[in-house]
Computed example of a mutant assay.
Amino acid sequence: MALPKFAGFLLLPLLLFISGAAHASGVSFDQNYQITWGYDHIATLDNGREVQLSMDASSGSGFASQKSYGSGFFNMTIKLPGRNSAGVVTAFYLISHGDRHDEVDFEFLGNREGKPITLQTNVFADGVGNREQRILLWFDPTADFHSYKVLWNHHQIVFYVDDIPIRVFKNNKRIGVPYPTQPMQIEASLWNGDSWATDGGRTKIDWSYAPFQAHYRGFDISGCEFQSQDAGRCYSLAYWWNSWKHWVLDEEQERQLEDVRKNFMNYDYCADRSRYPVPPPECH
């Protein structure tokens, strides 16, 4: 499979240090995050600037941001479990909590050694999900760290891999499509997904390869911290990610996105007529 001919990466603007936007370079894990489960399966490294999640037959593990956010540009740098990771799911996502939750997912679906790892993205809004897209990455995500990012403003959600846009979910509330607007935490986890993750659940986890380990870096956060008494401020144009030039992709980003879709996408819910004989409205 040929590599896409990316002419260059989008150079993101310098982050503005404005009131309510949390951002710092090289911050340690415990400044912005906390362990949520699998406490004895998590290790902090490099003076707290790296976290290792582990999973074995007894448990996986996960962590979450200490605060919730109403918009932002969220980044995590991840190195996935190597060797035989079939059935193992490594995740990085935004999520609200409650019955009708919002969620924006990166899920990495492990595979047998030598076979490609699938990246699945999904969007839930007002409790409605089932918007999966899947791509095969153009590099080995187990060999080194790569960055995975989400831009979330009131106009669009953009998923990035190493600054290359791989998916856009537009705000189409005007045509009745729910859009994530609830305050969301940033979460990450390593967990057992062998009921569905690899070959539709036919390939199970080989526990002889445990413990499986995923490494996370980049615990600074560029986001509008949610405050219930002033929720609307997270749409303010004072935050760079809400500025007009982030309402749509530019021409180069559109080309990069099309290259990814053409060369690496192997599933799109919008094209799945067995699930959606009539495509959802956002797919038109």
Rank of each mutant, 00 (worst) to 15 (best):
P4K: 09
F6L: 01
G8K: 09
L10A: 11
L10T: 15
L11C: 10
L15G: 15
F17C: 13
I18N: 13
G20C: 05
G20N: 08
H23R: 11
S25N: 14
S28L: 11
S28D: 11
D30K: 09
Q31V: 12
Q31G: 07
Y33G: 04
I35W: 06
T36E: 07
D40H: 12
I42T: 06
A43W: 11
N47I: 11
G48A: 02
R49I: 02
E50V: 10
Q52D: 10
Q52P: 05
S54T: 04
M55H: 08
S58K: 15
Q66T: 15
K67H: 06
G72A: 07
N75Y: 13
M76Q: 09
I78H: 00
L80M: 00
R83D: 14
N84P: 05
A86V: 13
A86Y: 07
G87T: 01
V88K: 03
T90V: 04
I95K: 14
S96G: 05
S96L: 00
S96M: 01
H97R: 15
D105H: 05
D105M: 00
F106A: 06
E107C: 05
L109M: 04
L109K: 01
K115V: 04
I117V: 03
Q120M: 10
V123D: 09
V123C: 10
F124K: 03
F124G: 06
Q133Y: 11
Q133K: 15
Q133A: 11
I135Q: 03
L136K: 09
D140I: 15
T142A: 08
A143V: 13
K149F: 10
H154G: 12
H155V: 12
H155G: 10
Q156N: 04
I157C: 04
V158S: 05
Y160C: 01
Y160L: 02
Y160A: 00
V161R: 01
V161K: 03
D163Q: 07
P165L: 00
I166R: 04
R167K: 07
I175D: 00
I175Y: 08
G176I: 05
G176R: 06
V177E: 07
P178G: 02
P183A: 08
P183M: 09
I186C: 06
L190S: 02
W191Q: 01
N192P: 02
G193F: 04
W196Y: 01
A197Q: 01
A197M: 00
D199Q: 12
G200K: 04
K204T: 05
D206L: 09
W207M: 07
Y209A: 11
Y209N: 14
Q213L: 08
Y216W: 01
Y216C: 03
G218Q: 07
D220H: 08
I221H: 06
G223A: 04
E225N: 12
F226P: 09
F226W: 15
S228E: 12
Q229P: 08
R233H: 06
C234F: 03
W240F: 10
W240L: 15
N242T: 03
S243F: 11
W244C: 11
W244R: 15
W247I: 10
V248Y: 13
D250M: 01
Q253L: 00
E254T: 10
E258N: 12
R261M: 14
K262L: 13
N263C: 14
Y269F: 10
A271N: 14
A271I: 09
R273S: 12
P277S: 02
P277F: 05
V278G: 10
P279L: 11
P280A: 06
P281G: 09
E282K: 08
C283S: 03
H284Y: 12
H284T: 12
H284E: 12
